[in-house]
Design a protein around this nucleic acid. Structure first.
Lengths: 338, 338
DNA sequence: TGCTTGTTGGAAACCGGTGTCAATCAGAGG
DNA sequence: CCTCTGATTGACACCGGTTTCCAACAAGCA
C-alpha cells in the first residue's frame, strides 16, 4: 500500500499470503476457517492496524450501520440521555448514531424525514416524543425500508418497535401520595393537547384522584404547553381560584418551575403553602428551590434497550417494552398542615 | 430495477438513454454538459425518485460526508445547542452528523476516539470543551486525516480550526457591572483546575476587579467542579467567611444554583442579601428563583460557524473565530443597598 | 487403495458510484 | 467539401469490500 494510505483488505491478503475472501472470512468471523490461518491473518491485521472500510462494506452488503435519531428537542436532558443510552448499546459495535433535530411544525416535516433517511440510507431510526406518537411518520420510515423503534409514554406500537414508560401509573401513584400526605384540594397542570404523554398523565391524575376517593375540581386544573411560561400562567390561574389548591401535580418539571415562580410572586411559600410535584426529573428539578419532588423515568435504560431492538431484531421480542418510573421525593411536597 | 429496490444510477442511465457517467455529471452539476441532456436526465431522476447512494459515492471519492461530534457532556443544553447549530449548516447538504459521547476519564480515551474516527472514516470532527482543550486529542484526529474544529473559551488553535467565546472579557464586564451596582465585597467561585474556561473566567474576574479598583479577597473565593453540589459547598465556605461577600460571580450556572441553595439554607435572601451572577445561561438560569443574571454565549451560532469551517475549508479563514458574549440581566443581581 | 464427503482457498463478478481518456459531433475556417 | 477545434458524451477501470462458484485438498469409509 502507498504511504499515508490506510491499509485495505488487499494489503492484508497480500502480506498474509491468503486471498481477500479469506481475510473477509476472518473479519466476519466465519466459522469454517482453519484456526492457524485465522490467527495468521489476525496478526497481520493487528500489525497493519487495518480497519475495514465501512462504506465499502455497506455497499457490498447492501445495508449499512447507521441508526438515526429523529427528534424535535422535547428537552435537552432527555435527548442527551437518549443519545447516551443508544451509545451504551452500540459503542462496541460497528453502528454509528446519526442525529437529526427537526421542526415538528414544518410543513415539509415528513419529506424532510424521508429525505434524511434516503440520503443517508439509514438502517434504522429511533423516534422520540412527540414525533414518536405520529403513525404517519413511523409509517413513512418503514416504507423506506427502515426499522423503527419508538419511545413513548404509552403502548403506541408492537413491543418489538417500542419502549415506553408507564406514565399513567406513575402519575396515579404520585397523586395518591399527595393524598396520603393529607392533601385533598389537588390541582393539575396538563400538557398540551395532542401529546400522548399529556393524555396519559392526565388519565393518571384522574385515576389517582379516584383511587384516593377525591373528586378533581376543574377550577384548579389548567392546560400548559410543557414550557416554563405556560406553567407560570397556569399557576396564576390555579392560585387565583376561589378555593386554591394546597398541592399541584404538574405534567412536567419545566411547568412546575413556572408554577413555583407564580406561587412566589403571590407571596406563597413552597412547600409550606403549596406542595408541588413535577415529572421528568430534569437537572432543573434538583437545582431549583425547594428541590422538586418529581417522577423519574429511566431514559437511558429505555434508549439503550431501544437501540438493542434496532440492531438485534431477533432478540427484540425478549426485551422489555414497558418501563417503570420512580417518584423522587424531595422537598417540594410535604404533609398538609391544615 | 427490481421491485422494491431503490433505483440506482444505472436505472437512471438506462431509462434516460445516456451513460452512467453522464448521470454522474448531472448529479455533480458538472458544467460541461448540454442543457437539454441535463434536463432530460433530471426529469428521469425526479420521476424515479432517485437518490445517489452515499456509501458508493464515499467509496469512489475516497472521502465521505460524515462529521463527528465528540464530547464528554459538559452540559446537556450546550451539547444540544451545538447539535442544532451544526445542523443549521449541514441540513441542506449531504453531510450528516454522527455523535459520540465519551468518558474523558477513561484510560483508553484516545484510542476510543481514534477507533471511532477510523471505523466510520469520518471526514471531520468537532471537539467540545473540555476535550477541545487537549492538544493530544486534536493531534490524534488530524493524524487520522480528519479536519478538526475546536470549540473553546480561548484561542486554542489556528483560526481555521477554532470557534471560541471571549470568556475573559465577558466575566470582566460582569464583575465591572457588580462594582457599578455598588458592590465591593465580590466573591468568586472558580471552575475546576485544568479547564481552560475556568482559567479564562478566573482571569476575567481578576481583570474586572482590577478595572473597578477592587482587590480580590481570597477568603471569599473558592473552587468548584462546575457541578451543583460543588457550588453549594463553595457557597457555604464563602458565606461563612468573617466578612462575607455581598455579591458572587459563579463560573457557571449550575454552581450558581448551588450557591443559591447554600444562601437559602443560611436564611439569606437573594438578591436582597446576596447578588449572584452565573455563566452559560442554561435553561435552569431562567427557571430558578430569582431568575439568574448570567453570561450568555452564542453556542448555536458558534457551532454553525464551526460546521462551516469543517465543510468549507476554503471559506474558513473568512469566518469569525471569536464570539462575543452578552450579560443577561435578570433579578439575581441588584444594587448594593448598604 | 479408490471413492465420497466436507473444508478451505481462489478467481471473478458485483455493489453503485467516480476518474481517465478517447470518441463523437457540430460549427468554423480554408 | 475537408480539416480543425472545442464541446459533449461514453467505455472502462477502479474504489474496497462481499458473494458465487468451483477447484484443491484432507479425512472418512468400504
Amino acid at each position: 500500500m502507498a504511504k499515508g494510505q490506510k491499509p485495505t483488505i488487499n494489503d492484508v491478503a497480500r502480506i498474509s499470503g491468503v486471498s481477500k475472501k479469506t481475510v473477509s472470512r476472518v473479519i466476519n468471523k466465519s466459522p469454517l476457517l482453519n484456526q492457524a490461518t485465522r490467527e495468521k491473518v489476525e496478526a497481520v491485521i493487528a500489525e497493519l492496524g487495518y480497519v475495514p472500510n465501512p462504506q465499502a462494506r455497506a455497499l457490498a452488503l447492501r445495508r449499512n450501520f447507521l441508526i438515526g435519531l429523529i427528534h424535535d428537542n422535547p428537552n435537552a436532558q432527555m435527548v442527551l440521555g437518549v443519545q447516551e443510552g443508544i451509545l451504551d448499546t452500540i459503542r462496541k459495535t460497528e453502528f454509528a448514531l446519526v442525529v437529526r433535530p427537526v421542526d415538528r411544525y414544518s410543513p415539509s416535516l415528513l419529506d424532510d424525514i424521508r429525505h434524511f433517511i434516503e440520503q443517508q440510507r439509514l438502517y434504522g431510526v429511533m423516534l422520540l416524543p412527540p414525533l414518536s406518537e405520529r403513525d404517519d411518520i413511523a409509517d413513512a420510515c418503514r416504507e423506506l425500508g427502515c426499522t423503527v423503534v419508538r419511545m413513548g409514554s404509552a403502548k403506541l406500537d408492537e413491543d418489538e418497535h417500542l419502549v415506553a414508560s408507564n406514565d399513567r401509573q406513575a402519575v396515579s401513584e404520585a397523586v395518591a401520595w399527595l393524598a396520603e400526605l393529607g392533601h385533598s384540594r389537588i390541582g393539575f397542570i396538563a400538557g398540551p393537547e395532542g401529546f400522548r404523554s399529556a393524555r396519559e398523565r392526565q388519565e393518571g391524575f384522574a385515576e389517582g384522584m379516584a383511587r384516593a376517593g377525591l373528586t378533581p375540581d376543574p377550577a384548579i386544573m389548567a392546560r400548559g404547553t410543557y414550557r416554563f411560561e405556560s406553567g407560570r400562567a397556569a399557576g396564576e390561574q390555579l392560585l387565583s381560584a376561589k378555593a386554591p389548591p394546597t398541592a399541584v401535580f404538574s405534567s412536567n418539571d419545566e411547568m412546575a418551575a413556572g408554577l413555583l415562580h407564580a406561587a412566589r410572586e403571590r407571596g406563597l411559600d413552597v412547600p409550606e403553602d403549596l406542595s408541588i410535584i413535577g415529572f421528568d426529573d430534569t437537572a432543573t428539578a434538583a437545582h431549583i428551590w425547594p428541590p422538586l419532588t418529581t417522577v423519574r423515568w429511566p431514559i437511558r435504560t429505555m434508549a439503550s434497550t431501544a437501540a438493542l431492538k434496532l440492531i438485534e431484531p431477533t432478540s427484540a421480542g425478549s426485551q422489555p417494552s414497558m418501563f417503570p418510573s420512580d417518584l423522587i421525593r424531595r422537598a417540594s411536597a410535604v404533609e398538609y398542615p391544615g
